[in-house]
């Protein structure tokens, strides 16, 4: 990521939301959507823009599961780990994805394209197993359907 791009995006966001402390989270959410993760440089610049300490910004960013302080894949695949999806054979979907991507749960492919993670209940318990790819939700998965979906993200 170019520093100039970061600063320009941050400037736009702070302009849109305002510098008040309560606007920090939307700014972090949008930066993550734009750049994929909130690295040290991003945290530092956000802290400067809001007049906060880096520690404080980092403490907020690191609290939320959907904000990444480490680089993740371009596509973050989150599989629902709630018991309802478990009852509907989530384990087989996970196995199929691990073997398709050649990584284990919690890992990122070497080309930084895919990360495999768990998430908690996605609100599709009657139609599980479910997964999200970035913000998009998929329910009623079978192992082959999940693999087909992932392949469409190449």
């Amino acid at each position: 990521m170019l520093r100039e791009t970061l600063l320009r995006t941050l400037d736009d966001l702070v302009g849109r939301y305002g510098k008040a402390r309560e606007n920090l989270l939307p700014v972090l959410q949008d930066l993550q959507a734009e750049f994929g993760f909130l690295g040290e440089e991003t945290i530092n610049e956000v802290a400067r823009a809001f007049g906060l300490s880096q520690t404080e910004v980092f403490s907020v960013a690191s609290f939320y599961h959907f904000l990444n302080t480490q680089e993740k894949g371009k596509y973050v695949i989150r599989i629902c780990r709630t018991i309802s999806c478990d009852l509907r054979d989530k384990a087989n979907v996970l196995r199929a994805l691990e073997s398709e991507l050649g990584i284990k749960m919690g890992e990122t492919t070497r080309d930084k394209k895919y990360s495999l993670d768990y998430a908690n209940c996605m609100g599709t318990c009657d139609r599980g197993p479910s997964m999200m790819v970035n913000d998009r939700l998929y329910a009623d998965l079978s192992p082959s359907k999940a693999v087909d979906i992932i392949r469409s993200y190449r």
Binding site: I83, C121, C125
Partner: peptide, 11 residues
């Protein structure tokens, strides 16, 4: 913020 495992009514 419907997050209780097994809840999907609010959505």
């Amino acid at each position: 913020d419907e997050g209780e495992p097994g809840t999907f009514k609010d959505k």
